[in-house]
Simulated scan of single mutants.
Amino acid sequence: MAENENTAKLAEVAATELFSEFFWDRSGPINHDWPCEDQERHSVKTHPCDVVYFYDEPYSPVRTYVHCDLKSYAKGTIRPASVKAAIESLAKQVACAEKSDAWRELHGHDHVTAEICGLLFVYNHDGEYESDFQKNLLSVDPEALALPRGSKLFVLGPKEIFWLDNVRDEIQRMRGKRPAELPSHEYCSFFHPQLIRRANLQSKRAKAATLEMLTSPMIILEHRDPRGSSRRGIIVFYSRPGDTADEFMYLIDTLRKHELLDDDTNVLIKTLSASPISSPTFQRAQQQYIEGLNKDAMNTDLAEYVNAIKYEPMNKVKSTYSSIDLGTWQ
């Protein structure tokens, strides 16, 4: 499962394009080694670092640093043993980063409360991997990993990266249309609701999509009117196929609970790899949701807001990068 230099750069290029659209920023150098803080336990003198990204958390005054291991593999080289080894190595890296002055000098910022998590990014550069990537994780025992208590480690496999890359492409496509369907970045942010027990403490600063959002079925992008009016747009990127009215009714109810249905908000739901009957199924869900409220709900403001929600399946795209071209321009 070895990567040559040019193939390895494919994951770097893919991650850079992907996460920049989700408002992640890069911090410090890329592709470097730093001293291990627990050489006896980890059996290494140094740890690798491919890249570190950061974003501000919405529900706490914390900055999250995402220490990444970027892998770029062809279809036949993604195997359970190698994925397990990469996860175990990444867990050690995160454990050391949390107590390493050298790591913080390279990647941290002064006067912020920092949390460090790990991300294994498994990019399939030939676009032909069709197997269930989750089976590669069955042999990984989370309790046996060398992670400090409370630390997190995320894994994005080919399917997840494909989904997120399609969201990225759709955002850029909408922004590039004439007339544009999305304003420039300064008027956009990813939506973090005001929860009952977790208030959004940094609504202006925390514009990024968190890892928790990127690994959930729903990514919500909010955009404001550049002309300064009170109108806003909400785009819900929904990763599930939409084969039943019940799942769409649950989605509509979630939007209502997050107070995203009102006079000043336009709501658009977009899905990828949707069921062939997802459009009529969504229309039925709108009707059933309103009917389920009460017998007179059809004439209420909420019924108007629910009926105004638009639904559009997305077209699939598959981003590919040439290792030959990357090698040529070194």
Rank of each mutant, 00 (worst) to 15 (best):
Q287F: 02
S273R: 15
A274M: 07
Q288I: 00
S279R: 11
I269S: 12
T271N: 11
I269E: 10
T271I: 07
S275K: 04
P276C: 06
N294S: 08
L268R: 13
A274N: 07
I290Y: 03
N299W: 13
S278D: 07
L302M: 12
V306L: 06
Y289T: 03
T281I: 03
Q286M: 05
S273W: 12
T300S: 13
N307S: 10
N299D: 13
P280H: 00
T271H: 10
N294T: 03
I277Y: 03
A303Y: 02
I290Q: 01
A297G: 07
N294L: 02
D301W: 09
S273V: 08
D296H: 14
S273D: 13
T300R: 03
N307Q: 14
I277R: 08
K295F: 11
L302T: 09
S275P: 05
Y289L: 04
D301I: 06
K295N: 11
K295L: 11
S275Y: 06
D301P: 11
A274L: 07
A303N: 07
D301Y: 09
D301K: 11
P280T: 00
Q288S: 05
A303I: 04
K270R: 15
P276A: 11
V306F: 05
S275L: 04
S279G: 10
I290S: 00
Y305T: 10
V267T: 15
A297C: 09
M298L: 08
F282W: 05
I309V: 11
S275F: 07
N299Q: 07
N294D: 09
S279E: 13
M298R: 12
Y289N: 02
T281N: 01
L272K: 15
S275T: 06
N299Y: 13
L268P: 09
K295M: 08
L293C: 06
N307H: 10
N294P: 02
T271C: 14
T271S: 14
P280L: 00
K270G: 09
S279Q: 12
L268E: 15
P280G: 01
T271M: 14
E304D: 15
I269H: 13
D296Y: 15
K295G: 05
D301S: 13
Q288K: 03
Y289D: 00
Q283M: 08
L293Y: 04
D296T: 14
S279L: 12
L268Q: 15
T271D: 08
N294A: 07
L272D: 13
T300G: 06
A274W: 05
G292W: 01
N307R: 14
Y305H: 14
A303V: 04
M298N: 10
E291I: 02
G292S: 09
I309K: 04
A297W: 04
A274V: 07
K295R: 15
F282I: 04
